[in-house]
Amino acid sequence: MIWLDTVVQGVLLGGLYALFAAGLSLVFGIMRLVNLAHGDLIVASAFLILIVVETLGLNPFLAALVAAPALFALGWALQRFVLNRVLGKDILPPLLVTFGLSVALQNGMLELFSADSQRIAAGPLESASIDLGIVTVGTMPLLTFASAVLVIFLLNRLFYSTALGRAFRATSDDAVTASLMGINPKSVFAIATGLAMVIVTIAALYLGMRANFDPSVGPARLIYAFEAVIIGGLGSLWGTLIGGAIIGVAQTVGAQLNPEWQILAGHLAFLVVLILRPRGLFPRAVD
């Protein structure tokens, strides 16, 4: 029974990693851009939610709702005015720019918020749990996982059943031909990064409510997000969820064996999948 419990906790933890990863996966899928500042943007968004909670006295979920449009606008502007200028055949310039952004964000947050660790208070929700009969799960992990499933479901609907999603896929296939359809690839990219920042807001909400965070924790979140995306197969959103779950389960099983093995087990699972399936579990047919 203890193992069933461990696996369930791991899958639910995977929901958090999938939330970290979904925005990264979206942006990579559409414009082949790896945003090295993704983890730091999650942390910065957590600080923004914290500020809204503290200044307006809102519940964290409402605070995230308030922060989301501002963060959409930030993502849109970041793409429009910075990243679009460096996107091209050469993948190095955008990598360097996002690396620079990562360093700048960490230092900026250190200036503004100090190195103290923070937490978004979620009240009774923090310790609430639900008895599912065979296992008992925390309400917060369950909510995180449900949010991840919902985010990925909605992203898939957007991708495959809307005109915007069609424009995303067409631009990702062939930006020049998309422009012959009247689509402006640069504004499509800007909308995509704006959307990724909305997902980042949701990830930040759960990051901030579930654990302490400080300006330096972004890169570690980025690693989990990377691993989830790569295990799942680049560009596959459901794959990202499964990738997150695999890392989550590896971590909880590792921790069950020996508490010091938690992080290591996650990375080992990543390496094992990479050796067995170098292109991930659900690679795209065309790339």
Binding site: S172, D173, T177, L180, M181, G182, I183
Partner: peptide, 22 residues
Amino acid sequence: PEGRRLFPSLSVEENLLIGGQV
């Protein structure tokens, strides 16, 4: 365009729809 350049991720109907989308 030369070489037709259909969008591989789009079905036939989606390829048609995207031409009149904007």
